[in-house]
């Protein structure tokens, strides 16, 4: 099995017009399809919808490959495409974000009077609504840190930026989500 080169090499090959661009595209699928899958699935909650959106995302990545100027990390660019496609899908299908009775995004660690009679499905829906309201960079960092349990160094590798900057993004994201959930709980 040939070794996958670094991101800069992959991007330079991707911009070519010969078969090497297709090879680079295959490497991108290998490197990022699982991460994109889990990201999309967290929003749309079913495998079928996730599969459809994921294929659309990769097709758009291929069609717009020349628009990626390498001034940000490749995954950050792909994440933006994935997020836009998922939101477009949700609005088109008029589906509620993460309102899935079978697979809520979060559950309660333990009983807390804080939550009262709120169900896991409701708190999951509020949480995803709060995440959706975040700016793109904060949303990406929060998802990779909170849901995917990545270390800041790993997040920096796929999104670019420094670990300090990523920590700041994460704490700002948590603060905004807290405010949103409290407003819902105190309603």
């Amino acid at each position: 099995m040939s070794q996958i080169p670094d991101e800069a090499t992959i991007v330079s090959l991707l911009h070519r017009e010969d078969e090497k661009a297709q090879v680079a595209f295959g490497w991108i699928i290998e490197l990022h399809s699982k991460r994109l899958y889990t990201t999309i699935r967290r929003w749309v909650r079913t495998h079928e919808d996730t599969n459809d959106i994921l294929q659309e995302v990769f097709i758009k990545i291929w069609k717009n490959k020349h628009q990626f100027k390498a001034n940000s990390a490749l995954f950050s660019w792909m994440y933006r495409i994935a997020y836009n496609e998922a939101m477009h899908f949700i609005r088109r299908e008029k589906k509620h974000l993460s309102m899935n009775l079978d697979h809520p995004a979060v559950e309660f660690q333990h009983f807390s009077e804080h939550f009262g009679k709120i169900t896991p499905e409701e708190i999951s829906a509020w949480l995803m609504e709060a995440v959706e309201k975040l700016p793109e960079k904060q949303r990406l960092v929060f998802e990779q840190k909170y849901f995917a349990d990545l270390k800041y160094e790993e997040i920096a590798a796929i999104t670019g930026g420094t670990t300090g900057g990523l920590k700041a993004n994460y704490f700002h994201a948590v603060q905004k989500i807290e405010e949103y959930l409290k407003s819902k709980l105190n309603h």
Partner: peptide
């Protein structure tokens, strides 16, 4: 303690 700390993240089923 944040509210998010009191929540347990559900694992996304991976194919």
């Amino acid at each position: 303690q944040h509210i998010t700390d009191e929540l347990k993240k559900a694992k996304v089923p991976l194919p």
